[in-house]
Lab assay of single mutants.
Amino acid sequence: MPEGSASLQLAVGDRVVYPNQGVCRVSAIDVKEVAGQKLTFVTMRREEDGAVVMVPEGKVLAIGVRKVASAE
């Protein structure tokens, strides 16, 4: 991610809310080559049905992904 860009610090195992998809758990953060460029992807699995969603790390905030609020 370019320096100075806002990002959401995620780790494998974090629970997040993905708008219009529901609650997901981060299952992987991997670098993949797409069209000759190396990009970091956040892979999330929906808790409702296990569907897998992959989002480029740089788009996580723009999409509206946020961490699940704690009970505290």
Rank of each mutant, 00 (worst) to 15 (best):
T40L: 08
E33H: 08
R46C: 12
V68Y: 09
V55Q: 04
I29K: 03
E33I: 13
K38C: 02
E33A: 05
S27P: 00
D49M: 03
S5M: 10
G4F: 08
E48S: 14
D30K: 08
F41M: 14
V34H: 07
Q37M: 12
I29H: 01
A6M: 10
D14F: 02
R66Y: 15
S27I: 14
G13Y: 01
G58M: 10
P56Q: 07
N20D: 10
V23C: 00
V23I: 14
A62R: 06
S5Q: 13
D30Q: 10
P19C: 00
K59S: 13
L8E: 08
G36E: 03
G36N: 05
S5V: 12
S70G: 10
I63A: 13
G64I: 07
V42Q: 00
V17A: 06
G50P: 01
Q21A: 08
R45A: 07
K38G: 03
A69F: 09
L10D: 01
V31I: 10
E72T: 12
T40M: 08
D14T: 02
D49Y: 03
K32F: 14
L8R: 05
L39T: 12
G13C: 00
T43N: 02
A51M: 13
A62M: 07
A28S: 14
K38V: 09
L8S: 08
K32V: 13
E47N: 01
R45C: 02
P2K: 10
C24S: 01
I63H: 12
R15F: 11
V12N: 01
V68H: 07
K32W: 14
V53F: 15
M54H: 07
V17G: 03
Q21Y: 15
I29G: 00
V60W: 11
A35P: 02
N20R: 07
G22F: 03
G58D: 15
C24A: 02
E72C: 15
S5Y: 11
R45V: 15
R25P: 00
V16H: 01
K59I: 15
F41W: 14
V31K: 06
V31D: 05
E47Q: 04
I63V: 11
N20P: 10
E57T: 06
R15P: 02
A35S: 13
D49N: 07
L10A: 01
L10W: 04
T40C: 00
M54W: 06
G22E: 04
D14K: 00
G22S: 05
V16M: 03
M44G: 00
G36I: 02
K38M: 12
T43D: 00
V65L: 12
K38I: 09
V53A: 04
R15W: 14
V60K: 02
A35Q: 09
K38L: 13
Q37Y: 08
G22W: 04
P19R: 06
K38D: 04
A69Q: 13
V23Q: 03
N20L: 09
A51C: 05
K59Q: 14
V31M: 07
V53W: 15
A28F: 06
P19K: 06
Q37H: 09
V23H: 06
S7Q: 11
N20T: 12
G58C: 06
E57F: 14
A51V: 13
Y18H: 12
Y18Q: 02
V52N: 04
R46P: 02
L10M: 04
V65C: 07
V65E: 04
G22V: 04
V42L: 08
V53G: 02
E48Q: 11
G22Y: 05
V31F: 07
E33C: 05
Q21W: 15
N20W: 05
G36A: 02
P56S: 07
V55P: 01
M44I: 04
S27Q: 11
I63Y: 10
R45G: 02
V16G: 00
G50Q: 05
T43F: 12
R66V: 15
V23F: 14
V53K: 03
R15S: 05
A28P: 01
Q37R: 09
P19I: 05
A51S: 10
E3K: 07
S27H: 08
E33Y: 10
E3H: 12
P2H: 12
G58W: 15
R25W: 09
V12G: 01
A35E: 12
G36C: 00
S27A: 11
S70Y: 09
G58E: 15
S70K: 11
D49E: 03
R66T: 15
V68S: 05
S7N: 11
G50H: 04
V26K: 00
G58P: 07
V42R: 00
Y18R: 02
A35K: 12
E72N: 11
L61Y: 12
N20H: 10
L61Q: 10
P19V: 04
V23P: 04
Q21H: 14
G50A: 03
V23K: 03
N20E: 09
L8M: 10
N20Q: 08
V65D: 04
M44C: 03
V53N: 02
D14S: 02
S27D: 14
R46M: 04
A35H: 13
K67D: 08
L10P: 01
K59A: 13
E72M: 12
E72I: 15
V55T: 03
A6C: 04
V60F: 14
A69H: 11
Y18A: 05
K67A: 07
Q21M: 15
V17H: 13
V55G: 03
R45D: 03
G50I: 03
S27F: 13
V55E: 06
G13K: 01
E33W: 12
P56E: 15
R45E: 13
V53H: 05
T43W: 11
V26M: 00
A62Y: 06
M1L: 11
S5L: 10
R66A: 09
V17I: 14
R66H: 15
V55H: 04
E57C: 05
G64F: 07
D30P: 01
P56T: 07
A28C: 01
R15K: 09
P19A: 07
A51L: 11
I29P: 00
V26S: 00
E33N: 08
G50L: 03
I63E: 15
E57K: 07
V68P: 11
M44Q: 00
V31R: 06
D49K: 02
R45S: 08
V34N: 04
T43P: 00
V26D: 00
A35G: 14
N20I: 05
P19T: 04
G22I: 04
P56R: 04
S5D: 10
Q37K: 14
V12Q: 01
S70Q: 13
L8I: 09
S27Y: 13
A6K: 12
A71K: 10
D49I: 03
E57M: 15
C24L: 11
I63T: 08
V65T: 05
Y18W: 11
L39E: 09
D14G: 00
M1T: 11
E47D: 05
E72H: 13
V42F: 10
M54P: 02
F41C: 00
A6D: 11
V12D: 03
G22K: 05
D14H: 02
V34Q: 05
V16Q: 00
S7T: 12
I29M: 04
V42G: 00
A28H: 08
P19G: 10
V31G: 01
E33K: 06
G50V: 02
G4S: 13
M54G: 02
V12K: 02
R15Y: 14
P2Y: 10
Y18G: 04
E47T: 02
I63R: 04
G36Y: 02
V65S: 03
M44N: 00
K67I: 15
P56F: 07
M1V: 12
Q9N: 11
T40Y: 07
R45H: 14
L8T: 08
L10E: 01
Q37C: 01
G4C: 05
V68C: 15
D49V: 03
R46E: 01
R45T: 14
T43E: 07
D49Q: 01
S5C: 04
V34W: 08
E33Q: 09
